[in-house]
Nucleic acid binder design. Sequence first.
RNA 1: GCCCAGGUGGCGGAAUUGGUAGACGCGCUGGCUUCAGGUGCCAGUGCCCUUACGGGCGUGGAGGUUCGAGUCCUCUCCUGGGCACCA
Length: 852
Amino acid sequence: MSRYDPATLEPRWQQAWDEASLFRAERDETRPKYYVLEMFPYPSGRIHMGHVRNYTMGDVVARYKLARGFNVLHPMGWDAFGLPAENAAMERGGHPADWTYANIADMRAQMKPLGLSIDWSREFATCDPEYYALQQSLFLDFLDAGLVYRKPAVVNWDPVEMTVLANEQVIDGKGWRSGAPVERQERQQWAFRISDFAGELLDALEDMKDWPERVRLMQANWIGRSRGLEFGFETIGAPEGFGRLEVYSTRPDTLMGATFAAISPDHPLARALEGNPAIAAFCAEARRSGTSEEALEKADKTGIDTGIRVRHPLEPGRELPVWIANFILMDYGTGAIFGCPAHDQRDLDFSRKYGLEVIDCFVARKDGAPVENTAFVPPKSEPVLWLAGLGWPETATAEEAIAATIDRAEAEGWGRGVTRYRLRDWGISRQRYWGCPIPVIHCPTCGVVPEMKENLPVALPMDVTFDQPGNPLDRHPTWRNCTCPKCGGAALRETDTMDTFVDSSWYFARFTAPGAPTPTVAEDAEYWMNVDQYIGGIEHAILHLLYSRFFARAMHITGHLPEKSREPFAALFTQGMVTHEIYRTRDGRGRPVYHLPEEVETTEGGTRLRATGAPVEVIPSAKMSKSKKNVVDPVNIIERFGADTARWFVLSDSPPERDVEWTAAGAEAAFRHLGRVWMLCDRIAAMDHDAPGTGDDDLLRAMHRTIAEVTTHIDAFGFNAAIARLYAFTNVLARSEASQPVQRQAIMTLAQLMAPMTPHLSEDIWAHQGGEGLVAAAPWPVADPAMLETDTLVLPVQINGKRRGEIEVPRDLPSAEVEARALALDAVARHLEGRAPRKVIVVPGRIVNVVA
RNA sequence: GCCCAGGUGGCGGAAUUGGUAGACGCGCUGGCUUCAGGUGCCAGUGCCCUUACGGGCGUGGAGGUUCGAGUCCUCUCCUGGGCACCA
């Protein structure tokens, strides 16, 4: 008897699939297509268990759909632009392109042994000049269609590195590398007009039933539609040109409680006042904090009185002070608000800090007390008792009061109702080298001029260094120099590159025609689009997916995608992370020291270091991270156990949408199980073909039930539950004494049902049992409904909702008879203690409950 | 701070529309095989009381709806994720 040896078995079958071109996707209008896509990876150089899980899930879907007769498209590529390549160049020298392509080669070599059913002929990287040239042509088409413009936007500027920093690179207001205080700076930025699509992107979510509810909710909140009042305050003492101050509020019902107005430090009025050194100093300080919403919300609320005042629109005699406040965002609304401290916690904190007045507009209907240190903010649909209403009923809800205020403002002409979105336009300019150059030219005579399509790509120069601060494109001796496409005069190239989210916003469309000279090909897009199943991490729930939805619309408007592709992802699945325990000890000074899994051992006495026997603290279920040393390298796992074990384990232990904890014991158990299945196959092959067996029918019934259950679970993405059924069936088969032909049928069906998860082992079993062709190409087994029926049922019998016994009854026994048999049970008689039951509930085919 | 998700045995988790809580796996315990280098097989395993029969308690906590709640409702605690230049 030979041993289960994945190291020899797996490469053999990968070669067989290759030779059969089994996963090569060809357009074929006579067959239904199925496009399954996993979010493509960033080429960091090493695959991790998260990749294994993500791509295994996609592979299960792809292989299953292939077996169900679909023409499957399952491609792979690389999200290859981005900061890490530049950081590597800075730290180690070399060029980002070399680093990136070497990483891609390494990662591809690590992925291939997983045996994924990928059409590798369609592979590309977003940093390929062929890809970004087409992205530049899309940009020009978008520009032409009015979907792109330039606007000033606020960025994190590191004055030492002379570069713009990502939010994650700003730590406590300082640059992560330089340690220099970061400044908020306004720069001209290219932006996509995604906010023009805000309403549409929001409304369309409604129909996207095959997206997770929470992702749709997160996107809806992100887009953030609100209805409010916009109006202008008349100002007193403001500089020339600032006669009115436009404000926006979603709570105009609290206007009578307004006690101050506040503007963003980036508001034009604030800038106009910077002649005052105190104001200039305040604004400079405010701009020093990060630009993220989180940083603004968490920062202490501070402000400065400008000395300017505004007139209350309904009580012209009342004047409100105008403050500059650090928590007002220039990007939202008009960058100016009126503050009503009684009904907004931030405004209240601010008012208490600076001694501003607090006026209650309404109080709770029961025990309504004036506001002290907690703002009164009940749900808008709740009736409240109005102290400062504007003619609406004394117990109106905020919703009613808001509508009434807007109506009145419009009737009296001092304000208007406005629907606004929280969603801002998508700023795509990055002052970085390793990205897709924005194909425009700055001409001293013609201004901003698009590059001509025949000159694309605007290619990144290779002769650059990263040893000085700033963007290498800015300081390149010749790259910027060009001629203006309009007037032919000397001009300069744009040195900003595009946000890498642009690269990933259309790669799924490019996969439908990866070699074409145009971004897409109509026939291919028409046939392959949309992505039937998209799979990726929840961390992309908002940005990547929202940008892609916008991009698909923009590509439709510019003629690159069909109408149906406005929503490019028919179904979305968000998978959880792979986690692992962290092993921690403390050094002499109490600082944490982390240990690799192989450095520790767990016995009855607890977990200890192998080397010293020192006790180790175990922290469960932590995201794998190099600094915590709790990473498991898939390459090592595949070497030791084979790809099928890795695939089986990452699917088996947790529901796909949740995190899975990698454990060495679990991986070993998976390996042992696959070995058992393999030996089972061997045993069945060696059986006497003609010897009589017992229990043929039982085994066949179990087999058909397993087919039905596994199929249902795979359809519902319940891979862990499918695997549980496969375990159970394997146990049944292992104990079966059925005849050889029936056992052979059972093991071959088992191989088929396991094939999406463990494709190599399944091929081997299939071949061993004399199956025809490749199991990967065999049609999916179908359960015989007649074999799923049973003649009798076991019904639990409850007394007052507690299970006390069970009865076995014929399937179609009438309820009255079921009731009689249940009452005849000893346990029922004992609990009734001679009394008649008050009620008996019989749920046919389910349960009997006796109410005593 | 705001938004979202999740809490079920020692562990990962299972459980059509509200209908036998703990499937399946890990771990652990006992036994068999004698395999000496990660073996196989059998049995048991939520907690507590009980020799047994049987009983009580159990899905983060508190209340509620129901013949019946892991599932529905209200409040609450804890953990994880996202927050626009990380990809």
